[in-house]
Amino acid sequence: MISIPDKKKKLNLGFLGVGWIGRNRMQALLNHSPSKATVICEPDSQNAEEAIQNAPDACCVENAEEMYNDSSLDGIVIATPSALHAEQSIAALNAGKAVFCQKPLGRTADEVKKVVAASKAADKLLTVDLSYRYTEAFQEVYKRLINNDIGEVYAIDLCFHNAYGPDKEWFYDLPRSGGGCVMDLGIHLIDLALWSLGFPEIKEVRSDLYAQGKKLQLFEDKIEDYASISFLTETNININLKCSWHLPAGKDAEIHASFYGTKGGLAFKNVEGSFYDFTAEKYNGTQTEVLVTPPDSWGGRAGVVWAEDILNGKGYDATTAEELIKTATLIDRIYAR
């Protein structure tokens, strides 16, 4: 018998970590999906107080175990430091909760595989906040790539320079972060490139990582703040990625994913150094056609899709799981792990 989702039902969600990103994602879910914040767990009292202002009916708990053990919860949104993501996701999934986790899901492919296994065993939906997929600008680029608008893609250029870098000290500690600007920024663009190509096998990886202007040696226990990486797919598509923290780029941020094919080009680009405003462009020789322009409130859209999928009865997603493992395995190769 086919079950029909209850359109009147509201998801009961727990929010584990409500710093700036956690609160932003919570607000998007409350505003744009049939969800309510039932439980909040946050060690920083100021963050917790700000979150409660937007969810006055939520209960605050002191430790994550109380959240995992709450039988009323349908899912848990995780926005904590990277070192905690895999462990907390596994605990939530083992407790029968769907999980929406900030990237990276794990610091290594091994951690990601363990989370995926927990999702499969529990048959609960696992989603990672790879949010640029859900921008209107990249959705347009993706649609045109799938429709073969620019012919056969042979090269992709990816770039993410953040002039400021993270403001939390744990980002600069390798055991806690799992990596530097590649793990923090590059992962988004790697995901866009692989997703657009259908997650092909990568036969060659070359990575040059730098810390404060000095090239890092293999297995050096330091965090990179600049990376230049190239991949070659099994069908010889060339992918180049540059990303950084604190680069003197003359603007707040430089973000783009440019695709070059036998019949033209497509690009997803930030506007005037913005972290939030994006455009989509199509290139034909020297001509540029603007496809999408701001504004676009995309920040919490991935979480809203996750919530709607839960309400529609979606559980373990084997395709997404395989994508998460492939991305994490490639990042391991970048770091020579």
Rank of each mutant, 00 (worst) to 15 (best):
N54A: 13
D57A: 13
E308I: 10
M67F: 07
A48K: 14
L16W: 00
C243N: 09
F160W: 14
A28K: 00
H161T: 05
Y210H: 09
W245Y: 15
L192Q: 01
A280R: 07
E204A: 12
P34I: 04
E201M: 09
L266W: 03
I223D: 00
T235S: 14
S228K: 15
D208S: 14
T288E: 09
F231H: 00
W298E: 07
I325R: 09
E220D: 13
A109I: 01
W20D: 12
T235M: 03
Q46F: 11
K9N: 09
L174E: 04
I4H: 07
C159L: 13
A137R: 05
A318K: 15
K168S: 11
I76A: 03
I239L: 10
V305L: 14
V153H: 08
H256K: 14
V292W: 09
D110I: 08
S3T: 13
G75L: 10
Y226T: 09
I325D: 01
C159H: 02
A249D: 13
V39L: 11
A109S: 15
H246D: 11
A318I: 10
C181W: 13
C159F: 01
L145W: 00
N270Y: 02
S258N: 12
D57Q: 14
I21P: 00
N24L: 15
L105V: 02
D173G: 06
M1I: 11
A211K: 15
K326Y: 01
A121E: 15
A98D: 02
S119N: 06
G178H: 00
N236P: 00
C59Q: 15
Y68L: 12
A98T: 03
V112Y: 02
S230L: 07
P175N: 14
K97C: 03
A257T: 02
E140D: 11
R133C: 07
K214D: 05
P175R: 15
E66F: 07
Y210N: 01
V18G: 07
V61Q: 01
G250M: 09
G178Q: 02
D173Q: 13
E140T: 12
A92P: 05
V115N: 04
A48E: 10
A117G: 05
I223F: 03
D173E: 13
A155L: 09
S82C: 11
V61N: 02
Y154A: 00
L189V: 06
V290C: 10
S72R: 12
W170F: 12
E323S: 14
V141I: 14
G261K: 02
I190D: 00
A307H: 04
G75M: 09
T293D: 08
K215N: 02
Q27C: 09
E281K: 13
